[in-house]
């Protein structure tokens, strides 16, 4: 691990100002992904700002009838919150399908959104990776790509976003609330939060330097059946090959987002509109223009089959 200086933040304003002005400064909350990457020197911050003392650890009702989740609420606390379990079941299910009990106890809501790809070439500093070292190339293209993206990728990067939570937040139309060093706040729809790789795969999100996530807000509950189905190589504690988050109403309408297939949680309006027509119609719209590799072409039919399982589970409920 490279050396860094460390401070415990006492005010969000100061923390954001410092993160924006000190070259190489980073916030640390749960630390489960950042420290993992620092140990192999994929991440090399020069200064860490420990934000754990700043609060932001409550789940509150909003005036609009939704829920505001503090940025530092742990993944366990969020999954176990009775309002989330009752009204936003897809989010509880997604959280509980991710990581291990130990990691969920430490990982935070904001940190989960900001976790970096698990592409093996991103982790291996001996390999080319445009996300880790811009301009160095992509060893994943033509390499071991079983886990990687089938859609929305570029000739610079075929990484996937690893979060389960973010897929559920995408289907729920969450918004991300932030504050910057000047005290300016803004809200970012989850759809615009993560980026596609394009020519700049090293930039994962649309956050500005020093911008600090304070909360994630969910709109009013949607009702319907909430399902999160995750297909993976082990029954527990593995990243998704494909995951489907869906909210399905009694009349068969609803919405769906897919994980494990792209650089961000994947949701397409036309696929939502095709919900009553069944898995084939939904999948063909979700994955129109997919460019799978030889090793991950199985994900395309797997999305359709997982959708079929999700729809029959919702009907049976």
């Amino acid at each position: 691990m490279k050396a860094f200086t460390f401070e415990r933040a006492t005010s969000v304003q100061d923390a954001a100002a410092k993160a924006g002005s000190v070259q190489g400064a980073r916030f640390i909350a749960g630390g489960t992904n950042l420290l993992d990457l620092m140990k192999i020197e994929v991440e090399t911050p020069t200064h860490l700002i420990d934000v754990n003392g700043l609060g932001f650890d409550k789940i509150e009702k909003t005036r609009e009838g939704g829920v505001r989740i503090g940025a530092l609420v742990s993944n366990t606390a969020l999954a176990a919150d009775m309002r989330i379990r009752r009204d936003y079941g897809v989010l509880s299910r997604a959280l509980l399908a991710g990581a291990s009990g130990q990691l969920r106890n430490k990982a935070t809501t904001a940190g989960n959104l900001l976790q970096r790809t698990r592409c093996p070439y991103f982790y291996d500093t001996n390999q080319a990776c445009n996300k880790r070292k811009p301009g160095s190339g992509c060893a994943a293209i033509g390499g071991y790509s079983r886990q990687l993206a089938v859609i929305g990728s570029s000739d610079k990067c075929i990484a996937t976003h690893p979060s389960d939570m973010a897929v559920a937040m995408r289907v729920l139309d969450a918004t991300v609330e932030t504050v910057d060093g000047a005290g300016q706040t803004r809200t970012i729809p989850i759809a615009d939060f993560h980026r596609l790789p394009g020519d700049t795969p090293h930039i994962d999100t649309n956050l500005k330097a020093g911008e600090f996530i304070t909360a994630v807000t969910l709109p009013r509950p949607l009702g319907g059946e909430h399902v999160y189905e995750k297909v993976r190589d082990r029954a527990s504690y593995a990243f998704a090959l494909v995951s489907v988050a869906a909210v399905i109403q009694r009349d068969g309408t609803g919405r769906v987002a897919v994980g494990g297939v792209a650089h961000k949680p994947w949701r397409i309006e036309a696929a939502d509109a095709a919900m009553p027509q069944g898995p084939q119609a939904i999948a063909s719209r979700l994955l129109a223009g997919a460019r799978p590799t030889h090793e991950n072409a199985f994900k395309v039919p797997l999305v359709e089959r997982t959708l079929a399982a999700v729809i029959s589970e919702a009907r049976a409920a």
């Binding site: 415990r8 640390i28 630390g31 420990d50 009990g101 130990q102 106890n105 430490k106």
Partner: peptide
Amino acid sequence: TVLVGGVRINSCLTLAAMHE
């Protein structure tokens, strides 16, 4: 795995300085 405030975590993925 250790317990911090009675809750289990991976002690390898957290800095000691974060546990004041």
